[in-house]
Structure formats: C-alpha cells, structure tokens
C-alpha cells in the first residue's frame, strides 16, 4: 500500500515553513486576536521600519478589507520632514483613518528637544500618548516594539496590560501560554499589544526585502547637512535647528538606523544606498541600533522606568 495515501493527510503538498513565514503567521494571529477581543483598537504608527512592517502585516491580516482600526501618530512636531510625507502616503494607501495627536500643553509651552531635554520626550510622547488614548477611549493599542531591542522588553508579554493610569507592572504580568491570549480587562484599563515581539532587527530587514515594503528614504544613504554634537551626528532637517557658535552644517553621506525626532536621532556615516547595502552594513556592524537614540543612555533601567510611567 502506498504510504502516501494513508489517512489521506500525507498529501505530498506538505512543505517546510521559513522562519519569516512563521513570524508572519504569529504576528497576523496576534493582530486578529486583538481586533476580535478589544472594543476600540488602534495602531500606533511611528513611521519607522518596524511600524512599516507592522502596518504591512495588519493589511495582510484583513485583506481584502482595510484593517478595521485607525492609525495613531503621536506627533512631537520634531520628526523628520520625510517621515511626515511617508505617514500621509501610507495611511492613504492602506485606506485607514489617520489620527495625529499633538499634546496641546507641549504645543503651548513650545517644548522642544533643544531647550527642554528629557521633558521633550515626557510631554510630547509619554503624556501625548496617554492623552490620545484617553481622548479616543482606545482600549488596545498595537506597538511595534521587539523583544531583542532592550532588556526590559525581553520580559514583556505580547498582550501587555496597563492600569487606568497607563502604568505597567512588570512584577505582576499575566502568564501567557501557547497562542491563547487573555484580553479581558476592566473598564479604563487597556492593552498594549506587540505583534513584532519575536522579530529581530535582521528579520525586519529581511522581511522588508522579501515583501518590498516601502520605508522612509532616510534609511538610505545620501548627502545630507549635518553637525556633530555631543558624540551624535545630527541632521539639520529644517531651520529650527539652533546652531551653536562655530557650528556650520557639513554635507556628509549619512543614513539612519532608527528614526525619531530629528534633533535626538544620531546618523551613521554610510554609503549604503540600497536595501542590500543596508543589510550588509547591519550584518557587519558592531553596535546595536538603539545606540543612535539619546533617550536610552541615561541608566540601565531607564526603559523599564519609562514604561512603568506609560511610555510605549
């Protein structure tokens, strides 16, 4: 008897899944689960490469329909101009509503990264995010964080709970087994869901390459006006950049490994102008991608602390 015909199941079509196919399947499952269980989900869209992958996965999850939730951009008014262009284009292409929230208090006080240091992140991002979630009564928010990014992220659940005050309690996380996610919560509480938890930086780049996902051009190297300050190579993206005495923008061939507020995001000198070049550079590099962000340098537990306070 032909062993292939036993129980009709060993149909020769069986095939091995690649690690990207498995990661994709898991992420789509997570996204659908949140939508099935939450009342008012929203996707945090930060316009970076991880957000781009997350948005792509959301579109796959609900195709041919557009994802049944809006995108939320918590704006600081200090993002790169190229990011704003990308944001508006992608929201339109995906057929999704885009909510842009700017903390009115930060706007009134003119909070900026040059004069206000840590308060810039606190007010625009942490406070701004809380305001937006409260104002629209969102009870679940997707974020593009990965567990390989940072130590406290490595221990965070895929469905991560926030109290009514948006606080994270790392010592009291719900056990998360198999693919069974507990999304039950009391009124006022919310979930942060991380569909990319198990992706690494290399997975993200490989997937962008495989799927042809559009990303902000700033990831690719080009001659750009820069100044070197406090060990970071900063791009002078608009005329709000206050030059110190003796500073003058210099054209350098640079690109960004991570994108945030332009005065806080360090560039790397690079000739990588294609996706393949970027991946090559990433594979041969010796520093982690968060190094380019001023925000994490303070102390070992800085991210854990920020998250407890409600930072995404």
């Amino acid at each position: 008897m032909n062993p292939e015909s036993i129980n009709g199941a060993a149909r020769s079509g069986a095939r091995r899944l690649t690690h990207l196919e498995r990661l994709e399947a898991e992420s789509i499952h997570i996204i659908r689960e949140v939508v099935a269980e939450a009342e008012r989900p929203v996707m945090l869209y930060s316009i970076g490469k991880d957000s781009s992958v997350m948005l792509h996965l959301a579109r796959k999850a609900f195709h041919p329909a557009p994802p049944p939730f809006p995108l939320l951009h918590v704006d600081t008014t200090w993002k790169f101009r190229a990011m704003y262009e990308m944001r508006d284009r992608m929201a339109a292409e995906a057929g999704m509503d885009l909510i842009v929230h700017r903390n009115p208090e930060a706007e009134r006080l003119g909070i900026n990264p040059f004069d206000h240091g840590g308060r810039h992140t606190d007010m625009w991002k942490t406070e701004g995010l809380k305001q937006a979630l409260d104002q629209h009564r969102f009870d679940a928010a997707f974020g593009g964080a990965r567990r390989d990014e940072e130590k406290s992220r490595a221990k965070e659940r895929i469905f991560s709970f926030r109290s009514a005050n948006h606080r994270w309690d790392p010592k009291n996380q719900r056990p998360e087994l198999w693919r069974v996610y507990n999304a039950r919560k009391h009124p006022g509480e919310s979930i942060r869901a991380f569909p990319l938890s198990n992706w690494t930086e290399l997975d993200i780049w490989q997937y962008i390459h495989q799927e042809g996902i559009p990303i902000v051009p700033l990831y690719f190297s080009a001659p750009r006006p820069t100044v070197e300050r406090d060990g970071l190579l900063l791009m002078v993206d608009d005329d709000r950049f206050p030059l110190r005495p003796g500073e003058a923008p210099v054209m350098r061939s640079i690109r960004f490994r991570t994108l945030g507020c332009y005065p806080l995001t360090g560039a790397v000198e690079s000739e990588a102008a294609t996706l393949e070049d970027i991946i090559r550079e990433m594979l041969l590099t010796t520093t982690s991608e968060r190094q380019g962000r001023a925000i994490d340098h303070d102390q070992a537990a800085s991210m854990e602390k920020k998250k407890q306070e409600g930072y995404f």
């Binding site: 690690h19 130590k151 406290s152 221990k155 790392p170 010592k171 690494t200 997975d203 854990e304």
Partner: peptide, 26 residues
Amino acid sequence: DGLAAEREQGITIDVAYRFFATDRRK
C-alpha cells in the same frame, strides 16, 4: 536578567525571550 528587581536580587523571576541565529536556523 532584564528587570531591575532581578538584577538587584541576583535571581531570574520572569521568562525572558532571547534570539540568535545560525546559517541554518533562527
């Protein structure tokens, strides 16, 4: 040991997920 409490007490409390890859597998 990623959480502040764990580093202070020198023990592992919660599950952490780590990633590495070789030519053949992630």
